[in-house]
Design a protein around this nucleic acid. Sequence first.
DNA 1: GCAGTCCTTTACACAACCTTTACGTTGGCT
DNA 2: AGCCAACGTAAAGGTTGTGTAAAGGACTGC
Lengths: 246, 246
Amino acid sequence: MALSFTLAKKQPGAEMTSILMIDDDVALTQLVAEYLQLDGYQFTAVHQGPEGLELAKSNAFQLVLLDIMLPGMDGLTVLKQLRQHSYCPVLMLTARGDEIDRVVGLELGADDYLAKPFSPRELVARIKAILRRVELVQQQQQPQASSLQVNQLKLDSAKRQICVLDNPLVLTATEYQILELLMRHAGDVVSKEDLSQLALGKRLQLYDRSLDMHISNIRKKIAQYDEGEKIQTLRGLGYLLLQGEN
Amino acid sequence: MALSFTLAKKQPGAEMTSILMIDDDVALTQLVAEYLQLDGYQFTAVHQGPEGLELAKSNAFQLVLLDIMLPGMDGLTVLKQLRQHSYCPVLMLTARGDEIDRVVGLELGADDYLAKPFSPRELVARIKAILRRVELVQQQQQPQASSLQVNQLKLDSAKRQICVLDNPLVLTATEYQILELLMRHAGDVVSKEDLSQLALGKRLQLYDRSLDMHISNIRKKIAQYDEGEKIQTLRGLGYLLLQGEN
DNA sequence: GCAGTCCTTTACACAACCTTTACGTTGGCT
DNA sequence: AGCCAACGTAAAGGTTGTGTAAAGGACTGC
């Protein structure tokens, strides 16, 4: 028998963001529960691997906090099995300095990691970063305007071309991706982390300057035709293409 | 997030693109259902081989997602039997690193493969790539202008001849096909993958340089008569015949 | 068989590209 | 002011994709 799925309608705002935590440390999960509920998240905690895996696989959660040191089923195993079914974002919780787990975890498809002990504030910040990025990605999957204009910049995504004052820019594939992202979010700050993951396809590492170089090169190319059109830097936050009058 | 999603419009009144998924993993089919419906596709899932085969044979679907590991009837068997009746495009879903299934599948006429676990984003991208290519093929089967001119190049498809500054080029069948494709899409980037599938009739493999050689030979032949008329390379993207003034 | 034609593979050179390095500058902080 | 982390960018380094000659196969017609 053929099953046809109809899409459950998602009301904006009606649905809370649900977070699942898989960690055997009950006291810790209670602490985290308090903080996340204060921030308006729906929170669920389980203390065993298999149980957590089942819940995570249900795709009922927008994010999973996964402890690596778990009794019974190892956290990395949980992650590996989860990844067979779901791309639900996972934030790993590792013992301090456990470099190996961290690397393996990221390779298995974790979205971020956080070393224990962590401050609740930092946890919330990481969670927000992941969720914001997921939303960016989903936005990118939506059909997008094939052409748009920001000040003197004109984007033609069918031709993969960006023009400044009607002069086509000669951009590399990466430069094009970065500039397109900035244009599609003109007026918003785009963080370096987001740019790196979406355009370069890798997490931003400490002392990684390659994104800065791409921005530098894009600026140089734009400046050939228009000295006024500038990518703004917001120190510590990211980059911004100003929308509207200069 | 906005609830109302606009569909990527094809022709007015054209029916929706229907996709059939044959996979025993119910949770996975539900996840895929959500994503594809968000993208405006009509989606149907079945969990058994024979049932899927029947549906696929009905030609009611523009594309079939086919899991290789199926209980009852093996995915490769389904594919083989489907190919006796239909040329409906098939995207195989294989276990990671299952090289053998992949190769056999492509030989049996699958259009692409995707290793599990995959990200919904990647799945959508692959689907779009296949559908775009299918559209290109159908476009080619339509009656097309029997002659057209791009800069100094003149195509006479009745004679299967292409002239540069009125000098007929001596092209092999493959070279003619490639150049015709580029001319009919002058001004657009044509990916190496598309060129390979449409002109050479095979998927582009890693380290496969034969397309490069054909391009090289075509360039040489064109250059005999006109040094200015050039096939442009867009690194990592494909080739392009510039339309209009040089 | 053999020659001819065509497609593909191999091999090497090169160019484009991305990243890293290194050093200079800026801007927020105490 | 002085410090320090973040940023700008030129130059060097490493990687990858492309150009192309030449060799290797596959096929055809004689």
